[in-house]
């Protein structure tokens, strides 16, 4: 049984086409002569990728490992991300560190909406990815990617701080390949507030709606082995 990638909604395709211009060999040649050749886009991406400011936002167990990653032994400052900001208005990166319950999900989406572009999201730990060990629970959201777009998934329960650092490095690689004008226009935004993701309401038994259909669809099951 496999999940067909073609059916996934391709709204989060933020990576731009490869740059045309001087090749790496040309640049090395120029650098040897003391000339540094760059573009505004590269410069911006270099700056953005090396000063990702995370939101100081802990949900559950993984938050403790996130704190540990910022402490002396693992020292996230080596990658330019030690500036944990308590306000979403000043942050670039939302680390969803832990179980997102249905009661908490609207608040997480509101925080995401309040963050200025360009912004990135890391789903840290099994719970944030899919509900993890608590997936059977009636109050547990089965993955934050039902409501907001996620750039990097870090599995583990909880992931070690090294895994978080690795996820951050992956995110930095991702940022370096982006277009300077930011991501493509969001198709999944709410009809009333453009640029924002719709916040679900508390229903009588569940969240309403239970997911953002423009962002997430239940995967299609293809079972060639069994009819």
């Amino acid at each position: 049984m496999t999940m067909s990638d073609a059916t996934r909604p391709a709204i989060n395709a933020q990576t731009s086409a490869p740059l045309s211009g001087p090749t790496d060999a040309d640049r090395d040649e120029l650098r040897r002569h003391g000339i540094l050749l760059t573009s505004i886009q590269e410069l911006a991406n270099w700056g953005r990728s090396n000063s990702v400011w995370p939101l100081q936002f802990g949900l559950a167990c993984c938050a403790i490992e996130m704190i540990a990653a910022s402490m002396a032994r693992f020292d996230i400052a080596r990658f330019g991300s030690e500036v944990f900001r308590p306000s979403p208005r000043q942050a670039d990166l939302l680390i969803v560190s832990g179980t997102v319950t249905k009661k908490m999900a609207p608040q997480v989406i509101r925080l995401w909406n309040q963050m200025p572009e360009p912004k990135y999201c890391i789903a840290m730990g099994a719970c944030a990815i899919s509900g993890g060990p608590f997936k059977q629970g009636y109050n547990v959201l089965k993955g934050i990617d039902r409501f907001i777009p996620v750039d990097v998934y870090i599995p583990g329960c909880p992931p070690r701080p090294e895994a978080l650092l690795n996820g951050l490095i992956e995110l930095q690689k991702n940022i370096r390949g982006r277009h300077i004008a930011g991501p493509a226009p969001v198709e999944a935004d709410s009809p009333t507030a453009p640029g924002e993701y719709p916040v679900p309401a508390f229903g009588e038994r569940d969240l309403e709606p239970t997911s953002n259909p423009k962002l997430w669809q239940p995967p299609v099951i293809v079972r060639p082995d069994k009819p």
């Binding site: 319950t101 059977q136 009636y138 109050n139």
Partner: peptide
Amino acid sequence: GYLHRNHEKIGENTTYLASMP
């Protein structure tokens, strides 16, 4: 309730040992 993960309900639906983690 912002981190209510239904520990007790899950505990009633699994075996004794499976609640240990």
